[in-house]
Amino acid sequence: MPYCENFEPFPGAEEFWSYLRRQFGMDPEAFRGYRLWHFPGRPAVWLAAERFVPEEEDGLETMGLPVLRRPLPRGMPTTAFLQRFGHLAEKNLIRVDQEAIIPLMQGKILPWDVETAKAGPCVVASDLAILGRGWIKQGWLVLDAPKEWAKSLEDEGQETGASPDRSA
């Protein structure tokens, strides 16, 4: 098969699918139409459509959607991956109200007294969309929100009566 000189099928694919089942209850069968790839010597892992088999001459620097920035067990699924596939989660899935969306996206933390999440990250979802990767830490819910969201959503946040931010 004419694999790209740099990208290769990720040898730890089975371990990753098992992790998704264990942590989020995601059925690996849901990823039947995809393959995992990596760039040997670099930590990131990428998810690509099954039909996307790179050719050596493509000389790619990225491929498909990033799923891990560094390997398991320390790495964790990216926000991009969870926003696309988080709807498949049946475990460690936190549903938040509409009013919580903007504060969380602005990097604010919300009180969360229901200990639904076990160790490790959770998928934070709302009726609107999957917000991304989150954590429950000592009674607070945190969303790993890209920093640029906060500035962009500044105006909306002023109208929401948000909980104290992380620096508070």
Partner: peptide, 25 residues
Amino acid sequence: MNDRLGLTCIGVRRGNGLQIPGEER
């Protein structure tokens, strides 16, 4: 943009378009 929209079929390469190698690919 790709990460935000969640596409899995796009690979990125950097270079001058005149120097993309190969023929009829």
